[in-house]
Design a protein around this nucleic acid. Structure first.
Length: 280
DNA sequence: ATTAATGTTCAGAA
DNA sequence: TTTCTGAACATTAA
């Protein structure tokens, strides 16, 4: 689940407690679950990081990135259920990695916890990260895109606009939940071909991306029914209370107040929308 | 007891 | 080239 707002919340949560600190050791938590995918593997990751200072914590799309004093960069990709934590994890069972700091401090360690285990952790050597997470692989950050960039990107594909919003090369950071929320605010049908948006609709889409993502960041992300997502201090997000359509089938549409929210499947993912006010 | 579904990404096929 | 499908994994609900 962690999409742009949740990952941004993780970054803001750990930044004041991690920047400037030195990593003393890295430990892969051994459990009977399948070991986490990390690169480089095992001892080498520890050797490369040990004694290194965290210069800066930042977000690249849906990844938490620690830039080290050495110029290397650690990219943590939570995918479906990963959490970056300073405090108590939901359980010890699914702890995957621990970075222990040289000084004890209020939080002696940074943790990566992941229930499903699809998340990845990767250390890029100096200069490598730009090649791997640069413009060839990822589009511009969804929050930084201008109206003109949206217009150009959307007109370049015939896919359904909901599916296009999930394409990380088109715009980086939007995921399944926020794609439905953004489109509902624009009153555009999720199955509309992306290249068939009128100029006024592109304008509304640009505005809705800004509105939904910045609101969701302000509310510290969405913690869904299974309660998996937490911020760095294990607190739940609050944006789920503001959802207009996501997981709200059968509810009255908050825009037109007459339609009923329905669920369809696009690209093997759930889409929620109001068939009355979101026009094809 | 199977089967389907869950927030993401990517390789490989169509 | 662009777009679609299934797999990676663990857990829960039907």
């Amino acid at each position: 689940m962690p999409e742009l707002p949740e990952v941004e919340t993780m970054v803001r949560g750990i930044r004041p407690h991690v920047e400037g600190r030195t990593i003393a050791s890295v430990r892969r938590c051994r459990c009977r679950l399948k070991p986490i995918a990390i690169h480089p593997s095992g001892a080498r990751l520890g050797r490369l990081l040990r004694g290194s200072v965290v210069n800066r914590v930042r977000r690249i799309a849906k990844r938490v990135v620690l830039e080290m004093g050495s110029g290397a960069a650690l990219a943590i990709e939570p995918r479906m259920t990963g959490l970056v934590l300073l405090g108590e994890p939901p359980n010890r069972e699914h702890l995957r990695l621990e970075w222990r700091f040289a000084d004890a401090g209020e939080y002696p360690s940074l943790w990566f916890w992941d229930r499903r285990g699809l998340g990845t952790v990767r250390l890029y050597l100096p200069g490598e990260i730009e090649r791997h997470l640069g413009p060839e692989r990822l589009g511009r950050d969804a929050l930084e895109m201008t109206r003109g960039e949206w217009a150009a990107k959307l007109s370049s594909t015939r896919r359904a606009v909901k599916v296009a919003l999930l394409d990380q090369r088109l715009a980086a950071g939007i995921g399944n939940l926020y794609a439905s929320e953004i489109l509902h605010l624009t009153r555009i049908h999720p199955e509309r071909p992306a290249d068939a948006l009128r100029p006024s609709e592109v304008t509304r889409l640009h505005a809705a991306v800004q509105a939904v993502l910045s609101d969701a960041i302000r509310y510290e992300g969405s913690t869904l029914g299974d309660g998996t997502y937490r911020n760095a201090l294990s607190r739940e997000g609050r944006y789920q209370n503001e959802h207009r359509v996501y997981m709200r089938c059968g509810s009255r549409c908050p825009t037109c107040r007459r339609g009923t929210i329905v669920r369809i499947v696009q690209a093997q993912r759930s889409t929620f929308f109001c068939p009355r006010c979101q026009r094809l």
